Computed example of a mutant assay.
Amino acid sequence: MLSIESTERLTGGRISGDYWDLDELITSIYEVIGDENKYYDYQGARQRILGVCLQLRKATKGECNIEFVANGIHKGIEKRKDLIAPAKNVYFSVEILWPELIFTALALNDFIDLYNEFVDNNPWNPHTTTIRKFQSIVTECLREHLLEEQFRVFIHLMFTKSPKYFRYATQYVDVLNLEYLKLSYDERKENLGAFAFRLMVEDDEYTALKNEIMATAKLTKNEIHELPIQTKYPEHIEW
């Protein structure tokens, strides 16, 4: 079963599941966000989501964390069924920075709306329901670290303003990731909700960054999602 829990230092969320849990999520995301020729004005958001998918795929290859999780098998079942079976299943997990994980969950809303409009609006579509499950466990994990009022506002904003990430300057996610990494554990506890809101409301810092990127894009004839900003992530992250 797919699950998410906060890391020990509240640096990010640890996404965990067996191979098929993670593979199902990756496959559903690929289906819903479409190929690179679809939804061009959402390419920045699409590329960031694909970055998370890459981390999930690395996890399924055993390149991140491997856990052994009890599966319910016990001696009574083995005796009754006359079999010998492992008592634990192999689970894979990977950590994603909290701002990145929140952005991914939010941006998938836009792609679900696009998918429903242009591809399949069946409410029981297996790909959109898989993504909704992923979003729900992200938000439930986040709920543990927000005040009740903060969480109510977060959920309200999550589903009331759409689209959120049309021609979005996704470089801002890097800015928030790096700011968040500099915080202490106590500062993260106090400010995680504020970081979530900054991904949903275009504040002055975001507007200034986007204006700067757009000015550069006008000179270079690039799209805004094609322009990197100067960022340097630490080689080692304490999760």
Score class of each variant (00 low, 15 high):
residue 141 C to I: 05
residue 230 Q to C: 14
residue 77 I to T: 12
residue 117 E to R: 08
residue 113 D to V: 10
residue 155 I to T: 15
residue 206 Y to E: 06
residue 197 F to Y: 01
residue 184 S to N: 04
residue 70 A to C: 07
residue 52 V to E: 00
residue 53 C to D: 15
residue 5 E to F: 11
residue 219 L to S: 11
residue 108 L to R: 08
residue 149 E to H: 04
residue 225 H to R: 12
residue 171 Q to G: 08
residue 129 T to Y: 07
residue 77 I to V: 00
residue 37 N to P: 00
residue 204 D to V: 13
residue 34 G to P: 01
residue 213 I to M: 05
residue 9 R to L: 11
residue 101 L to K: 09
residue 173 V to E: 08
residue 93 S to E: 15
residue 139 T to D: 14
residue 128 T to R: 13
residue 29 I to V: 06
residue 60 T to C: 05
residue 151 F to N: 00
residue 215 A to S: 07
residue 17 G to M: 06
residue 208 A to T: 09
residue 6 S to K: 14
residue 116 N to G: 04
residue 84 I to R: 15
residue 98 W to P: 00
residue 132 R to A: 12
residue 128 T to I: 10
residue 145 H to G: 02
residue 81 K to E: 03
residue 159 F to L: 13
residue 204 D to Q: 10
residue 223 E to N: 07
residue 25 L to G: 08
residue 74 H to R: 13
residue 153 V to A: 12
residue 113 D to A: 07
residue 89 N to E: 14
residue 128 T to F: 05
residue 181 L to T: 00
residue 61 K to I: 07
residue 39 Y to H: 01
residue 185 Y to C: 02
residue 78 E to D: 05
residue 178 L to I: 12
residue 17 G to W: 07
residue 184 S to L: 04
residue 110 D to N: 03
residue 82 D to M: 14
residue 157 L to I: 05
residue 131 I to Y: 06
residue 155 I to V: 15
residue 218 K to W: 08
residue 129 T to S: 06
residue 133 K to N: 15
residue 103 F to T: 01
residue 61 K to R: 03
residue 200 M to V: 10
residue 172 Y to D: 09
residue 110 D to W: 08
residue 43 Q to Y: 13
residue 164 K to P: 00
residue 71 N to I: 04
residue 213 I to W: 03
residue 160 T to A: 10
residue 111 F to W: 03
residue 104 T to R: 05
residue 213 I to N: 03
residue 9 R to H: 12
residue 198 R to L: 06
residue 202 E to R: 07
residue 163 P to I: 03
residue 157 L to D: 01
residue 207 T to G: 03
residue 178 L to A: 01
residue 231 T to M: 14
residue 182 K to C: 01
residue 170 T to G: 05
residue 151 F to Y: 15
residue 106 L to K: 02
residue 223 E to Y: 04
residue 198 R to M: 06
residue 38 K to V: 03
residue 77 I to S: 02
residue 49 I to K: 13
residue 203 D to S: 14
residue 147 L to T: 10
residue 68 F to R: 13
residue 62 G to S: 06
residue 140 E to R: 05
residue 160 T to H: 15
residue 175 V to N: 04
residue 205 E to C: 10
residue 94 V to T: 15
residue 239 W to M: 09
residue 23 D to Q: 05
residue 57 R to W: 09
residue 7 T to H: 10
